[in-house]
Amino acid sequence: MNTLKALIRSSVNDYTAALKNPLWSLLTITTFTFTACNDNAETIPVAQQEIIEAVYASGYLVPDEEYQLFAQTEGVVAQKLVEEGAEVKAGDPIYILGSTQQDARYTDTQERYRQAQLNLGENSPVLQELRAGVQAARTKLAYDSVNYHRYKNLIEAGATSPAEFDRMRLAYENSQSEYWAQQSRLQRTTNQLQQELTTARSQLNIASDESGRYIVRSDRDGKVYYTAKRVGELVKRNELLATLGRSNQYHLELQIDELDIRKIALGQEVLTELDAFPGKLFRARVSKIYPQVSAREQAVRVEATFTDSLPGGFSGLSAEGNIIIARKQNALVIPKEALVGDDSVWITKEGKAQKVRIQKGIETMDRVEVLAGLDAQTQLLIE
């Protein structure tokens, strides 16, 4: 208070003289106004210390490679094969769903495929009958061919009548036509049965694939963090069944206000606290910045990978942290409350109060770095 009174007396004594000097009158009037109106002002030195600029972020803990399993078809949970916390391998079944209609369709397509195989096999009754017809036609053709050529020789020798020769020739031609017809019928039926087998196989594959959808499997190695259904519950198509991820490997998913996103870059350090571990600080680094702003929350999602090991973890743990934007050692730092306007401060110089302009650097919630305008010996005046 004595210092403040001395500054006031000095300012008053200089006030009259300053009025005679236009170049200094404005500064002196401003100085007098400050000292006269702030009886509670005090002087503090400019500090030289570390200053850190950071952006606040909040979010939660997420397993690495987290993914969700959805039902590919409708059904009822017949078996639930794992519980939360279980370790699974790629391909391990998680749920088995049941469906009476699907079971009936699968059985029907199996029977159709089996019948199609029999119809095309060596012991196929249909093909055996057709092959027998071809063989009979071939035998008759051979017999009629012999008679035709014998009667042809006889007619040339004049040993038979033309009517008998024509009868043998007609029988031979009819046998040829019948043989070709039987062969064509066999080939056509074989092709048809082959097509039926192909169709039946395709339908069986489709039914098998649909039945496979009733077995919900893990896509990769990991841990089951959440299961959504119990035995006997109805499952609809595209309904969530389970959440899985890497075992005991986590990262942070953080929300950043859209006003701060221009300050965020990959690789920046993140200092975070988890509610489950009070008093402990964990370090991470920004590993992914999503390009879309949430319209509802007006925030951007950021992922951070831990550089410190966690003593344990649970998916979904809430987290709060600061993303380090800038850090400087031995910086000239002043309290933010010392600012007058945006870029000025009151100081004492040679026993007088003066208002000076500064150049700011890093800013935090309560401190400001001074790049120019002050030095380490400067004494600030603040209320």
Score class of each variant (00 low, 15 high):
Gly98Trp: 13
Ser99Gln: 15
Thr100Gln: 03
Thr100Gly: 01
Gln101Ser: 09
Gln101Arg: 14
Gln101Pro: 02
Gln102Cys: 05
Gln110Leu: 15
Gln110Tyr: 14
Tyr113Ser: 06
Tyr113Arg: 04
Arg114Trp: 07
Ala116Gly: 03
Ala116Thr: 02
Asn119Tyr: 12
Asn119Trp: 11
Gly121Cys: 07
Glu129Ser: 07
Gly133Arg: 06
Val134His: 01
Gln135Pro: 00
Ala136Ile: 01
Ala137Cys: 09
Ala137Asn: 05
Leu141Glu: 03
Asn147Arg: 07
His149Asp: 03
Lys152Pro: 01
Lys152Cys: 04
Ile155Met: 01
Glu156His: 10
Gly158Gln: 04
Ala159Cys: 02
Ala163Met: 00
Ala163Tyr: 01
Phe165Trp: 08
Asp166Trp: 06
Met168Tyr: 11
Arg169Lys: 10
Arg169Ile: 00
Ala171His: 09
Tyr172Trp: 15
Asn174Cys: 12
Ser175Glu: 12
Tyr179Ile: 07
Ala181His: 14
Ala181Gly: 11
Gln183His: 09
Gln183Pro: 05
Leu186Val: 09
Leu186Cys: 10
Thr190Asn: 10
Asn191Val: 12
Leu197Val: 01
Thr198Gly: 13
Thr198Cys: 15
Ala200Tyr: 10
Arg201Lys: 09
Leu204Val: 09
Asn205His: 09
Ile206Leu: 11
Ala207Trp: 04
Ser208Trp: 07
Ser211Ile: 07
Ile215Gln: 08
Ile215Arg: 13
Val216Gly: 02
Ser218Met: 02
Ser218His: 02
Ser218Asp: 00
Asp219His: 07
Asp221Phe: 09
Asp221Gln: 04
Lys223Asn: 00
Val224Cys: 06
